[in-house]
């Protein structure tokens, strides 16, 4: 009886502490300041475009107080797929009570994981984020159509990855945060597409200099939502 009571107390305690210690990092891609909608036609003066796929990996999230590492997110590899809204939020339990005011993470998958065989969960090759003709994870998939692209069906297709120098595409992102319970990260896709220069670059599907540039442009587009 006493044991059951103790267990009951423990359960209550752990559920309360879980609520206290849970934080969330949410990715909110936008298009012209509105939430991005997949397969929606966005019309402009000289362009009409739509995004059909936006998937990317966020890995090794670390939390800092000023410059001191105080915690890290236990789930190391997170696949964000805009088609599945539940993947846009990374919920995690804090292992200590110190507040953080800075986060760092990587866009893409580290080289060790890229050479260590099969993994499951977010890294499972069935997620379509692994090249099949050559080993390596795809860190970012961005696909769609734009009148600016001279390609068949005006399609653009970016499969960005590569883990070996000189085309190691993994990017480290460092951001100061306000508060440490819910961090909303914005990704301004309309701005990113302008930078990508779709009239000239619209098919990048292997590790290369172009892929590296796009990986940098993509990680620069991630900002803390003010």
């Amino acid at each position: 009886m006493r044991l059951i009571f103790t267990l009951f107390l423990l359960t209550i305690y752990s559920s309360i502490s879980a609520q206290i210690n849970e934080s969330i990092i949410e990715f909110a891609p936008t298009f012209n300041d509105l939430p991005l909608e997949l397969n929606k036609n966005y019309c402009f003066k000289n362009d009409s475009l739509k995004i059909s796929t936006l998937k990317f990996y966020i890995s090794n999230i670390n939390l800092y107080q000023n410059n001191q590492l105080i915690d890290s997110v236990s789930k190391k590899y997170n696949l964000i797929d805009v088609e599945n809204p539940e993947t846009s939020s990374i919920k995690f339990l804090r292992t200590n009570s110190m507040a953080f005011n800075r986060i760092s993470f990587s866009n893409g998958i580290d080289s060790l994981t890229n050479v260590s065989g099969a993994f499951g969960g977010d890294l499972d090759p069935t997620n379509g984020m692994y090249w099949t003709w050559q080993s390596g994870y795809i860190g970012l998939k961005l696909e769609g159509q734009s009148k600016l692209c001279p390609s068949r069906n005006n399609a653009f297709i970016f499969h960005i990855g590569g883990f070996k120098n000189p085309y190691n595409s993994i990017q480290n992102v460092n951001l100061s945060t306000k508060g440490d319970r819910k961090i909303i990260l914005n990704l301004d896709i309309s701005k990113l597409l302008k930078e990508l220069n779709l009239t000239e670059i619209y098919e990048v599907m292997s590790p290369s200099k172009k892929a590296l540039t796009i990986a940098q442009q993509f990680s620069n587009a991630i900002k803390v939502y003010e």
Partner: peptide
């Protein structure tokens, strides 16, 4: 040597349009 690990090797023939012409997801 395009494939760096034995685990990942079957993905190449499974997904090659002239070999097995499948997708990994559909096989699973």
């Amino acid at each position: 040597g395009a494939i760096n690990h034995l685990d990942m090797q079957p993905l190449a023939p499974i997904n090659h349009h002239k070999e097995m012409g499948e997708t990994t997801k559909d096989v699973v």
